[in-house]
Design a protein around this nucleic acid. Structure first.
Lengths: 207, 207
DNA sequence: GTCTATAGAAGGATAGAC
DNA sequence: GTCTATCCTTCTATAGAC
């Protein structure tokens, strides 16, 4: 593969990524990708053969990006509280810079479950998922985290940090009418969510 | 409008609702709606003129459904804790029966902000939003809820109860590999979320 | 490797008969 | 009000020149 090849292929790939994220698979037109990449429509097919293959290539990278940011954090040797603080802060900062990644990822998983499931298979999610089990058992006991509660806790953390980006357009719309600012809200939220979660599970030991 | 009119129009509307929710605006074909309604494609245009108008009609009803379930709960005279418990339980039960409503609603808001914003205007969201202000001030003080924290708390409640449905396909996929069951998880979650939120804000008075 | 031209199919929308 | 037939546009994809 020559230097020029790579340049063009990359230009196409970047343009495709932008358009797919903005319009979704069904709403994307090959013409728009070509225009954005500053090349001819036929070149898209030369490099990626079909729209579906191009989408698949783009989607795979995005899925990797999303999960590669997540997994390492759970492997670090930290207390549960510090893992939560680190994760929320890092994850929300990442989403802050890529606010449409999560909505795109989750939406396409609904529309094209076939294309998507294969990626999930490759991700060794079970490894990551059970990372909570890598904590000292004393800590799990201390917070009354049972095996049944692990999915509840993990999805709660994802929900609290990811939801604002999924509902961003709605939230912005509501904030306009009620005098709040979205960016401000997100900045505050990094700490709010960590405290929120930690308080929630701390209190669990009392009650 | 005759009886037959209404029958046909309703058949179309129901078919359109189903297809739009499943495929999204961009992914929906008029032909598919017609097939599903058991009528001819031209009839769609006879009743709704264009695809966009049909979509708008469908979307408006869905938005109303989503918000009409929510607003009344915040107007009832209950303690904050009981409002939270009631809301989470009712809201999640509703979403349990209509699991694709929230993903559909939020996704289309990203894709067609123009069509959508007009509905939001009509909803008197500010009324609902400030309903937390209708609580006795003692209660707000008791939980250390400041004006700055209101959006954080409200979005957290929506996040915790709505996220599992937005990420349903992903969660199901992960659960398959880790030995959990989605329906079970949702049933448990109704109580988990209420406890989680209440613990989180309760503890706030201590720390 | 990149372009122009165009095939071939599909989609939204309309005209007109009944 | 409902159907058939069809127009016109748009979209993906390919053929072929350079």
């Amino acid at each position: 593969m020559t230097e020029k090849d790579k340049q063009t292929e990359e230009k196409i790939f970047e343009a495709a990524t932008a358009v797919f994220i903005e319009k979704g698979m069904a709403g994307t037109r090959m013409q728009e990708i070509a225009d954005r990449a500053g090349i001819n429509k036929s070149l898209l097919h030369y490099y990626f053969r079909t729209k579906e293959r191009l989408f698949t290539a783009v989607y795979e990278v995005i899925v990797r990006q999303l999960f590669q940011k997540i997994a390492p954090m759970f492997e670090k040797k930290l207390t549960l509280e510090n893992k939560i603080r680190l994760f929320v802060s890092e994850h929300m900062s990442f989403l802050q810079q890529n606010p449409r990644l999560v909505p795109f990822f989750l939406n396409e998983i609904n529309r094209n479950p076939k294309i998507v499931k294969s990626f999930i298979e490759k991700l060794e999610i079970d490894k990551f998922w059970d990372s909570l089990n890598l904590l000292h058992k004393e800590e799990l006991v201390r917070y009354s985290i049972t095996r049944e509660n692990i999915p509840q806790l993990i999805t709660s953390i994802f929900a609290l940090s990811g939801f604002p980006f999924m509902a961003k357009e709605l939230i912005v719309c509501v904030f306009e009418k009620t005098g709040y600012d979205f960016d401000n809200y997100i900045e505050q939220r990094k700490e709010y969510v960590a405290d929120f979660v930690i308080n929630a599970i701390k209190n669990n030991t009392i009650g």
